[in-house]
Design a protein around this nucleic acid. Structure first.
Lengths: 116, 116
DNA sequence: ATTACATATACGAATTTAATGATATAAGAA
DNA sequence: TTCTTATATCATTAAATTCGTATATGTAAT
């Protein structure tokens, strides 16, 4: 799946579309581009977790974690489910997982490979 | 390549490593998470381009484009080569391309597929 | 040496984002 | 009902980012 050729795009209606897509993508990336939020998503990639579990893992204040989660919710990267007092978070869709996997492959795979 | 299990990580030295990787990754993502910079990288994915070409494509001020490029340079997402008066930019490595491809697959492929 | 062109950098104003402490809501237990 | 636990939201401040204007640098041409 090659990236598109400039010639096919320049000055056309496709340019507008490309700009629109870039905006959507950069919005999602903004949500991802934060150390704590990225860690949250990596943990959620393993399966759903309650806010308390996430707090403990990150070792950050409750309100801070909750606000990062709110951000991820608003940008539709995660979904929630309530069970009693707890609210469980999980990745919202496969797109998020795809991006996370790519990031994981680039930044984390080399580490594991080196350690074998 | 599965994402790692929490059990294997929690409380261990691996946690520190994971946090370090998250910081590296989020730094790169911050550079990516900007509409113009993302467009610049998409254009560069096709091949090297001079600053003037990039300016024309984006339709933004010279200093703005140059500053975005500086940011990408500092974060090592692009490299440069001088030829006479012009400076040509290109993607710095395959890691950048991998991430861009994942983003492209998620945000742009569906569009093209739909149009066929 | 002067000029023109391509690109980079400096600086400040405006905007955005993040962290904190305090308060609110919702559920369950007593 | 009151208390406690889990989570969310609000308000304030601090810090980071972005964009514009202006200026500087490097190369080539005259």
């Amino acid at each position: 799946m090659p990236l598109p050729k400039l010639k096919e795009i320049e000055g056309s209606a496709e340019l507008e579309q490309m700009i629109e897509k870039a905006r959507e993508a950069s919005d999602m990336l903004k949500a991802l581009s934060h150390e704590s939020r990225l860690l949250l998503l990596c943990i959620l990639a393993e399966g759903e977790k309650s806010v308390t579990e996430l707090e403990q893992f990150l070792g950050e204040r409750q309100s801070t974690v909750s606000q990062q989660l709110a951000r991820l919710r608003l940008d539709r990267l995660v979904t929630t489910r309530r069970d009693g007092k707890a609210i469980y978070y999980s990745l919202a869709n496969e797109d998020v997982r795809k991006i996370l996997t790519a990031i994981y492959d680039v930044f984390c795979e080399p580490v594991r490979r080196r350690r074998r």
